[in-house]
Amino acid sequence: MRKIGITGGIGAGKTIVCRVFQLLGVPVYDSDARAKWVMQHDAVLKDNLTAAFGPAAYTPSGELNRPHIASIVFNNPEQLARLNSLVHPRVAIDFESWALAQAPAPYVLKEAALMFESQAWKQMDEIITVFAPLDVRMKRLLARDPHRTEADIRAIIEKQLREEEKMARADYIIYNDDQQLLLPQITALHKHFLAPQ
């Protein structure tokens, strides 16, 4: 089974691209959603997070205490790196067991905003980067997330790998720039991935 990573900056359109692949019958692993699940259900990770961030990392009822962890890692790069160093390896293990359960699918997609930063690319056979210019992404995000300011969005973008770097490291690029149609690009890649290797 081929494992294809799909990444791109915030607002580039990874989610809509993944939805189209899902409509074509392709299993898609959403790293953000699964990371939240893993933090809640993986016993090893729960122990590690409690050891790293104290007993308040989880509520008395066993729920992840997001505000507590956020208060520690927000604006603290060392603590954020510590959190990521605990979470990303457990998500990688979760992805591997999920992928095994998808047989006999010819290929699966793993959607991850931090594909390169988290080292998740090492599990992939190939990488797709979804690209949109900054001005297009900004317009989309301000419309989609009215609670965020332009400064908030720029702060998120600055923490992500530069688009040029993502594109340089990708095997395929899908342009979601409001100039080119998405569907023909996605269906062409789908046919390519289904072709015998």
Rank of each mutant, 00 (worst) to 15 (best):
163 E>V: 14
106 P>K: 15
105 A>M: 08
109 L>C: 02
131 F>Q: 01
152 D>A: 13
114 L>K: 00
145 D>L: 10
94 D>R: 00
129 T>A: 15
98 W>S: 03
98 W>D: 01
125 D>I: 13
166 K>A: 07
154 R>H: 14
155 A>C: 05
132 A>D: 03
124 M>R: 01
161 L>A: 12
128 I>N: 10
126 E>I: 12
163 E>P: 02
131 F>M: 10
153 I>P: 00
136 V>S: 05
120 A>H: 01
121 W>L: 08
96 E>T: 06
159 K>R: 14
154 R>Y: 13
149 T>W: 07
144 R>V: 09
141 L>F: 02
128 I>H: 12
101 A>F: 05
139 K>C: 08
115 M>I: 10
105 A>N: 01
137 R>M: 06
151 A>K: 08
134 L>R: 10
133 P>V: 15
155 A>W: 04
123 Q>R: 12
114 L>Y: 06
121 W>V: 07
95 F>N: 01
108 V>T: 10
93 I>N: 01
154 R>I: 00
165 E>P: 03
115 M>N: 07
114 L>F: 11
115 M>E: 03
150 E>M: 12
149 T>K: 03
104 P>V: 14
117 E>A: 07
100 L>R: 14
160 Q>I: 00
128 I>D: 03
125 D>S: 15
124 M>Y: 08
115 M>Y: 09
140 R>D: 07
140 R>E: 09
137 R>W: 08
162 R>C: 14
155 A>E: 08
148 R>M: 14
102 Q>H: 02
136 V>W: 04
115 M>W: 07
95 F>H: 01
107 Y>M: 08
157 I>L: 15
136 V>P: 01
157 I>P: 04
106 P>D: 15
109 L>K: 06
139 K>M: 06
139 K>F: 11
116 F>K: 02
149 T>A: 03
148 R>I: 00
164 E>G: 10
97 S>A: 05
128 I>A: 09
140 R>Y: 07
112 A>W: 06
122 K>E: 10
133 P>M: 12
113 A>N: 02
140 R>G: 05
150 E>A: 15
138 M>N: 02
154 R>K: 14
151 A>E: 07
135 D>A: 11
136 V>M: 09
134 L>Y: 00
104 P>G: 11
97 S>W: 10
113 A>D: 07
129 T>D: 11
144 R>P: 07
150 E>D: 09
114 L>P: 05
96 E>F: 05
92 A>K: 04
111 E>G: 04
164 E>R: 14
163 E>D: 15
150 E>I: 04
160 Q>Y: 11
118 S>E: 03
156 I>D: 00
151 A>Q: 04
116 F>A: 04
159 K>G: 04
92 A>G: 02
133 P>F: 14
162 R>A: 15
118 S>G: 01
119 Q>T: 03
165 E>V: 15
160 Q>A: 06
143 A>C: 08
155 A>M: 03
162 R>T: 13
99 A>I: 05
93 I>Q: 09
159 K>H: 12
128 I>C: 08
93 I>P: 02
106 P>R: 15
117 E>P: 09
142 L>M: 09
138 M>R: 06
161 L>S: 12
132 A>H: 06
91 V>D: 02
137 R>Q: 13
148 R>E: 08
160 Q>G: 10
99 A>F: 06
91 V>F: 02
118 S>Q: 05
